[in-house]
Amino acid sequence: MGLFNRKPKLAADRRPPLERDERMLSWAETANGDGVVVVSNRGLWLPGRAHRLGWHDINKAVWSGRELAITPAEVVAERDGGYLVVADLPVETYLLLEPGDVPHQVRARVTSSVSYTAHYKLPAGGAVRVVARRVSGVDGLRWTVRYDPGTPTDDEAVVEQTGSLVAAARDTGDPGAVPD
């Protein structure tokens, strides 16, 4: 945008409570006017939420050209081996008639939070996605797994195979090298 076509600043009473080292990068008002989607360097502030979603807490973000659809992750278990089991929460959709840079920023930041991702069929049944993500403001990677629907997640063999895949990904970067 040119100097005279700049988007006005978001009114102070509509700004989210940013942390000291957090800065707002982009924003867009929802079509019904009851909220604002705010992109910060630390995550995404969505209408109706008291806290931001960190980029590592978003399993999927889709821009249709008018609607931004966000699928947040929910931690359902912490497993030995230093990884978390996550599941999709319901998709949240926001109609943005003047999205500005919001869709681009969301896509770029969700994508850049992913350091490693791979999907594996499990010999014991089902499949799992192993993901290592960067968490803004934290050193190191956060390892998570997300099981495909129908995978017996509490089955001892599935848990063992998943742990082996995560360990191999951490150690070699190639969990596919793990024998079945």
Rank of each mutant, 00 (worst) to 15 (best):
M1L: 08
G2F: 09
G2H: 12
F4N: 06
P8F: 07
A11W: 03
A11I: 06
A12E: 15
D13A: 12
P16Y: 07
P17C: 08
L18G: 12
R20M: 08
R20Q: 13
D21H: 08
D21P: 05
E22C: 04
E22P: 00
R23T: 14
W27D: 02
W27L: 06
E29W: 03
N32M: 07
D34I: 03
G35E: 05
G35S: 06
V36N: 01
V39Y: 00
S40C: 08
R42S: 08
G43I: 03
W45I: 06
L46N: 03
P47G: 07
R49Q: 14
R52V: 02
W55I: 03
H56A: 14
H56E: 15
A61E: 08
S64L: 10
G65R: 03
L68V: 07
A69H: 05
I70Q: 02
E74A: 15
V76D: 05
A77H: 04
R79V: 14
D80K: 07
Y83R: 00
L84M: 06
L84D: 11
A87M: 09
A87C: 07
A87K: 01
D88W: 05
Y94E: 00
E98N: 14
D101K: 07
P103G: 12
Q105G: 01
R107W: 07
V110L: 09
S113A: 15
S113C: 09
S113V: 03
Y116S: 09
A118K: 04
H119W: 08
Y120I: 02
L122I: 13
A124W: 00
G125K: 05
R129A: 15
A132L: 02
R133T: 15
R134M: 04
V135F: 02
G137H: 09
D139F: 10
G140K: 00
R142K: 10
W143G: 00
T144I: 10
T144N: 06
T144H: 02
T144C: 11
Y147W: 12
G150S: 04
G150H: 03
T151K: 08
T151Y: 09
D154T: 14
D155E: 10
E156A: 14
E156G: 03
E156H: 12
E156S: 13
A157I: 11
V158C: 05
V158L: 03
E160H: 13
S164I: 01
L165W: 04
L165V: 00
L165T: 00
A168K: 01
A168E: 13
T172E: 10
G173H: 06
D174Q: 10
D174S: 09
P175Y: 01
P175I: 04
D180Y: 07
